[in-house]
Amino acid sequence: MTTPLLEIEDLHARVADKEIIKGFNLTINEGEVHAIMGPNGAGKSTLSNVICGKPGYEITSGSIRFKGKDLTKMSAEDRAREGIFLCMQYPVEIPGVAVTTFLKHSINAVRKYHNLPELDTMEFVKMVREEGKKLGIDNEMIKRPVNVGFSGGEKKRLETLQMNILKPSFAILDEADSGLDVDALKVVAEGMNALRDGKRSMLIITHYQRLLEYVVPDFVHVYADGHIVKSGDKTLAAEIEKDGYAEYTRER
């Protein structure tokens, strides 16, 4: 048996003095798509931030291993360079930094980490244009400052573009469907499905089943009160859609 891509064991984490993740366990193998569903306030975003190394979160016990490496000792940028991508619920606006500049810094930082030469401008522009076209991103949009004045749909498209360019081995999609109309949702879902090649893995964090109709997961977990309370296949998502989370939150 090969090493799992991501292995989280008995993870406890807190923000300030508040413990949010309480005994979380999850193993994701190469090529698998997992969905974590949970009620608001269950700590879903905390989980993605802890995996990606956002400052301000303290791991009090447990471990996170990625490709066999201890992730908790790595900086946020090194985790990204190792192949973890966080598609954010609320992508951040960066005034004064054009999308192209941002993408170029990003891709070259990752290439440098893997001892690859930096992309020259021609190669880079060609790649961004090709990938952008698939997502309906035009040249005007990539000249604008990152996410500034972008609609909800444009923001998610840009997240998807970044994901498609960086080609991560593991993508976390945190509420990737929030604020999207059906058309935009389809575009994003197509972008995600395009990355499903049997080797890449994904963790989809969502409140609703909606996105899971387009990106069908291999496993579904119900997350409440800081840990997984039930696991199953895609039928579990449909159950939750029907019955809600009440059953899981009433537990304690």
Partner: peptide, 23 residues
Amino acid sequence: NQLFYMQSRGIGREEAKQILIDA
């Protein structure tokens, strides 16, 4: 948040700071 966003895309923290300062 801007720094973390850039770091989560593989851009080193110091480089990210410089990009923000230039901007």
